[in-house]
């Protein structure tokens, strides 16, 4: 441990491959994620982008039969190395999924649960975290009068913002979003997109999306995945206006995928 990475960015993957059994779902991908940027991962279904995203906080560990090769560098440490305290690591990397998955608890407890576990004590401190997390997720005004209500009583869009607030509650440095708006109505989608733009001021965000317009609207960098390989990676304007690769262009234009 403690090897120094030949890094351009403090968070990046290097030659990362992921296998399900013998099937190689992700093939040797190196990608940087700059501070205060949004990186969009796009590509047709089954291209490995979600698998790649889930490996960034080692969520794939929970699937038996999946193995990872290569490095994931965070601040000069390879978190993919055996012996990494995965549970500690995940605290630094928040994650939000396609389908909102609030805990079957009250709104307040959904947010306070993580910080409480990580040692924050006292009602006042927790109250503050709950309020600030909900504010950062632009949900505070809608729920401040009913924090003790079940989180499941919220609408889909509110639940998704609650999940973002929950992820923010433990102060992550990185936020992973797996199609966070694809199950939401247009109004909620707009709110979530707005939120992503605001949040990148504080942390770095990696988002998987099927929605090309969304990728163009909110991301700074775009990576196009195809069959487990990284076909193209560049600034979003460049990828969308003048892609290097024929396949990327066809996908963005909606010819397949």
């Amino acid at each position: 441990m403690g090897a120094i990475a030949p890094v351009r960015e403090s968070f990046q993957t290097e030659d990362l491959s992921i296998f399900y059994g013998t099937y190689e779902a992700v093939k040797g991908i190196s990608l940087p994620f700059a501070q205060n940027t949004v990186t969009a991962l796009i590509g047709p279904s089954g291209c490995g982008k979600s698998t790649f995203l889930r490996s960034l906080n080692r969520m794939n560990d929970e699937i038996s039969g999946s193995t990872t090769k290569g490095n994931i560098w965070i601040d000069g440490i390879d978190i993919n190395a055996p012996g990494t305290d995965v549970i500690k690591l995940r605290q630094k990397i928040g994650m939000v999924w396609q389908k909102p998955n609030p805990f079957y608890k009250s709104i307040y407890d959904n947010i306070a649960f993580g910080p409480k576990y990580h040692g924050i004590k006292g009602k006042k401190a927790l109250d503050e975290i709950v309020e600030s997390s909900l504010r950062r997720a632009a949900l505070w005004d809608e729920v401040k009068d009913r924090l003790k209500d079940s989180a499941l009583a919220l609408s889909g869009g509110q639940q998704q913002r609650l999940c973002i607030a929950r992820a923010l509650s433990v102060n992550p440095q990185i936020l992973l979003l797996d199609e966070p708006a694809s199950a939401l109505d247009p109004v909620s989608t707009g709110k979530v997109e707005e939120l992503i733009k605001e949040l990148k001021e504080e942390l770095r965000i990696v988002i998987v999306t099927h929605n090309m317009q969304q990728a163009a609207r909110i991301s700074d960098y775009t990576a196009y995945f195809y069959l487990g390989t990284l076909v193209e990676y560049d600034k979003t304007e460049k990828v969308f206006s003048n892609p290097e690769n024929q396949m990327t262009q066809e996908y963005i234009m909606g010819r397949f995928g």
Binding site: M59, E62, G94, K99, N101, F103, H118, R166
Partner: peptide
């Protein structure tokens, strides 16, 4: 997804 949410919080 409940389990995943818990993992992502570092529990």
């Amino acid at each position: 997804q409940q389990k995943e949410a818990g993992f992502a919080l570092g529990l």
